[in-house]
Design a protein around this nucleic acid. Structure first.
Lengths: 249, 249
DNA sequence: GTTTGTGAACCACTTCACAGCC
DNA sequence: GGCTGTGAAGTGGTTCACAAAC
């Protein structure tokens, strides 16, 4: 029995009720985006309800985990029926803060920065690219994905004017710490770091690191250990969400 | 007292001795690439030994964890002194299978695929891009990073000829499952998936998923929950490696 | 004195299994 | 009969703290 009852009976409509009592475990937080995406697919497919088993299949998470995860958000399911797709999508989106359409800046417009700038997925999933920045003056002014590249010197101004909360670092490793310092200085407290550098930041700044080579190396380990000692440690990876770009608690 | 003693006294030289007894925990495996990179930096800086505390600082992992992780590989440290940088680098590289210089293929040469193809980090860290593939015939033949794009139809042939073990999927979501099926069919058993799709594969195939939007959404959660309820759950993210491009266990 | 390697204690997450509700 | 929500049990990972080795 949850401390805050927030039952939602009228399906097809979205109810916003009281906040959950318990702290949401980090592991659950890391899976919420997965459920969010699965639910978006279900909405597109015009499904109105979904069971924990179905959502589990869709997301590659097991059903007990799905139920426990969702129970941290509140009591949004109906026994014998399942979860209302639209309402659950809304609740997860709210919990993740996606209603805010966070403005983000991308610093470092090399090949990766360019790919991120033109990646359609961000706008569709709660984020707006507020600016592209690069230290290379010869790049400044160039248009990428409808935005002109601006000099890194304008960072503080942009963060202030656009209320930027999240910074993406896509520079080479050597430049990354500098950029991080500037972001922190400007007031940004959430950083997604695609450089291989390990950043030093104050305690109240959250950093997630995504290292492409690291991901390959982890796969390499399991590949290697499948070939040699006989015992195939294969599906060990199957249900880790993270894997993901890299960081965490 | 480790079951297999493999002490290495001559520093400056690399000893390859018996394999470790215990199974290496997944969480440790995910951190080995971090140590590997840190050690490469130390080699470049001409440091010959390193303590667990120093390696911890360099990688953002805590020192007790570093020691426990390394102890799974064998007994490579010297009490009162630390670890021999070169030997430890070699041992971790061997454990990760980086001595093999795995050939990888990249399927889907859009902006992200292009960025991956030209990313210098792979070659430096144990991987060789064997081929770039795309289903779009108008792209076929184009040079990217010194390689010509080839049609997806040649996948099986390439995997066979080049002994490709790892496939990278950088296509849009709808195409991903198809590509995965083809990779599996061709014999690839390790897949790095950058599309937002959740792939269905046989049990003996390892998949890691890196979803850019998911990373941002996780940051968004903590940003959001820092702003509203007073209590700042800030540094929760600081020491998870993964976070990594996205997924994992 | 320094630093590793590791049992033991602790904590977080996962899985089970079932009561409660539709 | 079906499916959620959740205590309880189980598992795996982290941290502590110290004996052993240099």
């Amino acid at each position: 029995m949850p401390r805050f009852v927030n039952k939602c009976t009228r399906s097809g409509n979205v109810c916003s009720v009281s906040r959950p009592a318990r702290r949401i475990p980090d592991a659950t937080v890391a899976r919420l985006p997965l459920y969010h995406r699965g639910l978006m697919e279900l909405v597109r497919a015009k499904r109105s309800t979904v069971s924990s088993v179905a959502l589990a299949e869709l997301t590659g998470v097991n059903a007990a985990k799905v139920r426990k995860d969702l129970s941290y958000l509140g009591t949004y399911g109906t026994r014998g029926v399942g979860y209302d797709v639209e309402n659950l999508l809304h609740q997860i989106g709210r919990e993740l803060g996606l209603t805010q359409n966070w403005p983000v800046v991308i610093v470092g417009i090399g090949n990766l920065g360019r790919a991120l700038a033109t990646y359609g997925g961000f706008s569709a999933r709660g984020f707006r690219i507020a600016a592209l920045l690069d230290a290379d003056v010869s790049k400044v002014g160039t248009q990428v994905g409808g935005l002109a590249i601006r000099p890194t010197a304008e960072l503080e101004q942009i963060v202030h004017d656009e209320a930027v909360a999240i910074g993406i670092i896509a520079t080479p490793g050597q430049a990354a710490q500098d950029v991080a310092d500037q972001l922190v200085q400007a007031g940004v407290r959430s950083i997604l770091n695609f450089s291989p550098a390990v950043l030093a930041v104050p305690d109240d700044v959250a950093v997630r690191r995504v290292d492409l080579a690291v991901e390959l190396q982890i796969l390499s380990f399991y590949q290697q250990h499948r070939e040699e000692p006989g015992l195939g440690a294969a599906d060990l990876l199957a249900d880790d969400p993270l894997l993901t770009l890299a960081t965490g608690a």
